[in-house]
Design a binder for these strands. Structure first.
Lengths: 353, 353
DNA sequence: CTGAAAGCGCTTACAG
DNA sequence: CTGAAAGCGCTTACAG
């Protein structure tokens, strides 16, 4: 492999000048730069990144640790995000070093990775309120970017969508269609985004003057079919009045609800409106369900470039506060939402909170 | 961060001696070594791996490139293997650098990764016959280990299971139960392991004196429900005599076949025997299906340690031929296989090859 | 058993 | 505009 020295030897230049020419320093003469570039090209020169890293103190690698619980099936979210991040980071000359953690301690894997290796930073996903990883990495002085946020006001870089608005927009649309008994089929409550959606749901329901349902059902989208049982519970009407609309935290859960409605002979949207949040992951297209789903639409893959960008900027010294971005998901009305059915206009029993 | 120099300064030793003490060189005196270890511990010394790598020429990173087709849903296989490999490599002080490739050229991603970075080697998965990655990496002189094999005799390290035996053992079991009309629901034919299973199936059928079915159906386990339609095709009997047994390349496909049999009112195993290969991925437990599945059992996660081990040995200079291992999957008989039903003893029509 | 020295390939003040 | 030199933190022949 050709080195700076080799190029310099060919041209009678010092490695220092070759380095400057290659790295675009302005003081190098145009002729010298041209010769250096030509020779580098001809010799197939590739900078030795290990040497660069030793001298710059950067590794060019960022870590991502994915936690999986022992019996969880593959999480499509993970796949989609890792694929996108890997591409976006590669475009910025950065490697994604991946570790999978099955342990109990949420920070142990980070500590291990930091001890074993030089990493310039981390990408964190699946934030929970008071996420212990935040304190750990901030104390250690290690840059990171969060996919999502642990709270509304934080002092680290993040990228995500406005999850309060996700649920709020859904409720607003349904209220405009006359719905008052709206249920929320949410993700696991330990996740920050699920709490945000519940908060947005509550706020929008209150703003519309609607009573809240007695229970908020949570179901893991990682477990196939997890939305079916709660949907049957609601829609069979055994636990009180049926909702006329259900807000689902994912298209996967919405598909379960559709199946439950079909099994109960309840037409959508004539008897039940459904709206879901849509990550736009391959495998389940909201527009191709029967009926096509009304969704709040925010493709997961759109998060990858902002995350990579923010992390690399932060590693380069940009302040955290300048690297916080929260996009609004787009509301796309399709055929799964319609006017409230006749007789469905009554609110939830007023036992709601 | 403490360096070798810092430790040496504390003890009045040279960095060279500290290095030797830390790296277990035999010539260091026990007293010196003890003092060095104690001081290193106290100062929280961690070797700078970038520096180590610059001098040794090794990076301590191995790459894995996962190809995904644009619209494929998440492949559980990928998740399981990456999780296991990440752990096994970490235990050997090696990082897994992951890239995801959506392109057409099977070697382009490898070339890019080699140009951008120092990698000690690669882990390849999903081999196809005449896999172009093999020639590319061998020409480039880059070590790799294959999960599976591209042919019976190869000159690179690999770990996998005997896929001919997987299908052969299944056929043998079914033949012992009197079955003669056995069908194979195989994986995508471009994959080497699918070809091996077909070869094993054909060989075992011939050895048992059975005619072969006219068609071998392939279905991607990455597409949910992909096995249902072919199973209905066979079991409805419209395309000729029904098979009395079906060998499935995965438990996912077997679940589809079970569903098809149920929908047609065909009892298992009284009317149909089913045997599947079982990777033991979470999410679909062969023993918990109804009826519990007879399987050839070879957990994917068992492949991770041998793969990591072989790659690291090969990087360290061990010859490829010493790093080729093919394990036999374990046949586990459960309730989905039984004696051939009355009237099912006739062979396939003799139009088979 | 230990040290001084060279070197891995690069970057970057410091001179000129 | 270019070069000589120092240094990033480590390893490893070579001496002693």
């Amino acid at each position: 492999m050709a080195t700076l020295k080799d190029i310099g030897a060919e041209l009678g230049l010092s490695p220092a000048t070759v380095s400057r020419a290659l790295n675009g320093f302005p003081e190098v003469s145009a002729r010298t730069r041209a010769k250096v570039l030509e020779t580098a090209e001809r010799l197939g020169y590739r900078p030795n990144r290990v040497a660069q890293r030793l001298v710059t103190g950067r590794s060019g690698m960022v870590g991502m640790i994915v936690r999986i619980r022992p019996d969880m099936s593959a999480d499509q979210t993970f796949f989609e995000v890792v694929a996108g991040l890997s591409a976006e980071l590669a475009a910025r000359d950065t490697d994604l070093v991946l570790a999978v953690d099955r342990g109990d301690d949420p920070v142990a894997a980070y500590r291990r990775m930091l001890e074993r290796d030089i990493l310039d930073g981390f990408i964190l996903n699946a934030p929970v309120p008071d996420d212990p990883r935040v304190a750990f990495l901030q104390t250690a002085g290690v840059p990171f970017v969060m996919h999502g946020q642990t709270a509304r006001e934080v002092d680290y870089p993040f990228y995500g969508i406005d999850n309060r608005a996700v649920a709020g927009d859904a409720v607003d649309l349904l209220c405009a269609l006359g719905h008052r008994r709206i249920a929320l089929l949410n993700a696991e409550p330990r996740l920050a985004f699920a709490r945000d959606r519940e908060a947005g749901f509550r706020a929008a329901m209150r703003a519309a003057g609607n009573a809240l349902p007695d229970i908020f059902v949570h179901a893991s989208a990682a477990i196939p079919g997890a939305g079916y049982a709660p949907a049957i519970g609601w829609l069979s009407g055994q636990a009180g009045p049926r909702p006329t609309a259900i807000v689902c935290s994912s298209t996967l859960l919405a598909a379960d609800v559709l199946r439950a409605a079909a099994d109960l002979g309840l037409p959508v949207p004539a008897g039940l409106s459904i709206i879901a949040h849509d990550d736009a992951q391959p495998g389940l297209r909201a527009a191709e369900l029967a009926p096509p789903l009304t969704v709040t639409h925010a493709p997961l893959r759109d998060a990858c470039a902002p995350l990579a960008e923010a992390l690399i900027a932060h590693i380069g010294g940009a302040p955290a506060r300048a690297l916080q971005r929260c996009d609004r998901a787009e509301l796309i009305a399709r055929a799964s939402t319609g006017r409230v059915p006749q007789g469905g206009e009554a609110p939830w029993s007023s036992t709601g909170p």
